[in-house]
Design a protein around this nucleic acid. Structure first.
Length: 462
RNA sequence: UCCUCAGUAGCUCAGUUGGUUAGAGCAACGGACUGUUAAUCCGUGGGUCGCCGGUUCGAGUCCAGCCUGGGGAGCCA
């Protein structure tokens, strides 16, 4: 008999048929006559109830059906006599693939703290919460590719190892094959990277943007979706040392087009989840965050507020409120300021644009006022900046001047500058932090719980 | 990295001004129960009190250092 997924049985229950399911025991209840086994195979958050008449099975086999054990069960799918489910399987045979010693298995029938489960990341997939989170994570990854593919964007693979040290997005992880105990040295006593694997200093990428621009300036619209690495000593519920980022980059888009895309994109993803992950979202809404569904629907239904940095500073200055950090034109906005705008003043997602050039990256398009750049940050309730992007500076000389002002070594960026020399074009793009999106989508509160194996300072277990 | 809180049974926690043998609920295990839904009821076992020093007649409790984790901040996505 061919195995059926539990999702399939529950979605289209063909009662009366013999079925075969395989999965892991969530709980087993019963008395000396009958056993009820809740079985889950990961296809859905819902379990199927297996009913076994104890007299039909060896006592030793029944004893081994404990929480966590892996079973193959065949039997007839019937309407349930009990209240909690529509259908159940009357087991005719049970095979135990993997026993699970109840005395040493870390997961219990009852709830565990997120911290405890994080330390058991190899097993936490077996919980309802993490099953839901990682099914949603998958659905979002798929929806991202679908969104862009349907709109003529090309998926571009930008390098993970980079020789460019000029992206300026944070501390980088060094990549080397040199013997750290005994590295080759130059005459002046420095490490001689010309004898390293790539013949130069290399790092793990902090962004695929610069390479993404190269693709956009010929392919038109591209996006990247890959791992990103930051060696910052950040210890917060919103930061990872290894995370996934989506970076679309579009020729002929100005900042307005860029904002329109970002807003449409995020709303599409939320809508996709609402339509395709309702069981998992419903569970998370009940167990993790009672306001989750309401918030997701609200974001889809309402326009994002769009204001300039300068307008935001005015609002913050006028707010009758004490700031821990001062507000003033030219200062970067702090978390408390962003939170006020999103969660109190506007009570909806906010896109801030046209920041002072001093607090933004070198590649952003300079406005005519000489003071601001065509930047945009999309701020979300609860998680802060979910998207950061800009129109890019396409003017070769303006870009070169800015690079020189910031003392960025041109030898690392000659190829980037050449795109402005040969057939330059107005273009824009942004970066969306995938895990921050998943935080918002699931109502989870710590970013370490929305990536299967989090990498953070002092933690690379599993 | 800074601020702050915490670390006691498998899990979640209590533990009095420092004082004899460190407790509870849940889980596990044994038993009862004719269909259970985080089943229920009765019973049993289970401890390097994060680590290392110090103070003291005596430290889970007080002090110093370190480690780990949570929350907040910075950096950012």
């Amino acid at each position: 008999m061919k195995r059926k997924r539990i999702k399939q049985l529950l979605d289209n229950p063909a009662t009366g048929e013999d079925v075969l399911v395989k999965g892991w025991v969530r709980t087993r209840r019963g008395n000396k006559n009958i056993s009820f086994i809740a079985l889950n195979d990961g296809s859905t958050i819902n379990n199927i109830q297996v009913v076994a008449e104890n007299s039909a099975f060896d006592e030793s086999l029944l004893r081994e059906i404990t929480t966590g054990a892996c079973l193959a069960v065949s039997g007839k799918l019937v309407e349930s006599q009990g209240q909690g489910q529509n259908v159940e399987i009357n087991a005719s045979s049970i095979e135990i693939y993997g026993k699970c010693d109840a005395e040493t298995y870390p997961l219990q029938k009852k709830g565990h703290s997120m911290e405890f489960l994080r330390e058991h990341a190899h097993l936490r997939f077996r919980t309802n919460t993490f099953g839901a989170v990682f099914r949603i994570r998958h659905a979002m990854a798929y929806a991202i590719h679908k969104y862009f593919n349907d709109r003529g964007f090309y998926y571009l693979h930008t390098p993970i190892i980079t020789g460019s040290d000029a992206e300026g997005a944070g501390e980088m992880f060094h990549v080397t094959t040199l013997d750290l105990k005994n590295p080759p040295l130059t005459e002046t006593g420095e490490v001689d990277y010309s004898r390293d694997f790539f013949g130069k200093v290399t790092n793990l990428t902090v962004s695929g943007q610069l390479e993404g621009e190269l693709g956009a300036l010929s392919l038109g619209e591209i996006y990247t979706f890959g791992p990103t690495f930051r060696a910052e000593n950040s210890n917060t519920p919103r930061h990872l040392a290894e995370f996934w980022m989506i970076e679309p980059e579009m020729a002929f888009y100005d900042l307005e087009d860029n904002m329109n895309l970002a807003e449409d994109f995020v709303k599409y993803l939320i809508t996709y989840a609402l339509e395709n992950c309702s069981d998992d979202l419903g569970f998370l809404n009940n167990m993790i965050d009672k306001g989750l569904l309401e918030r997701l629907k609200f974001v889809v239904a309402n326009d994002f507020v769009r204001i300039t940095y300068t307008e935001a500073v005015s609002i913050l200055t006028a707010a009758s409120r004490k700031w821990e950090y001062p507000v003033g034109w030219g200062r970067d906005l702090q978390a408390e300021h962003e939170r006020y705008l999103v969660e109190e003043h506007f009570k909806r997602p906010v896109i801030l644009t046209d920041y002072p050039k001093e607090i933004k990256a070198f590649y952003m398009k300079q406005n005519d006022d000489g003071k601001t750049v065509r930047a945009m940050d999309v701020l979300f309730p609860g998680i802060g900046e979910i998207i950061g992007g800009s129109q890019r500076e396409e003017d070769h000389d303006k870009l070169l001047n800015r690079i020189n002002e910031l003392n960025i070594p041109i030898k690392d960026l000659w190829w980037y500058l050449e795109t402005r020399k040969f057939g330059t074009a107005p273009h824009s793009g942004f970066g969306l932090g995938f895990e921050r999106l998943i935080l918002f989508m699931t109502g989870m509160s710590n970013i370490r719980d929305v990536i299967p194996f989090p990498r953070t300072p002092k933690n690379a277990e599993f």
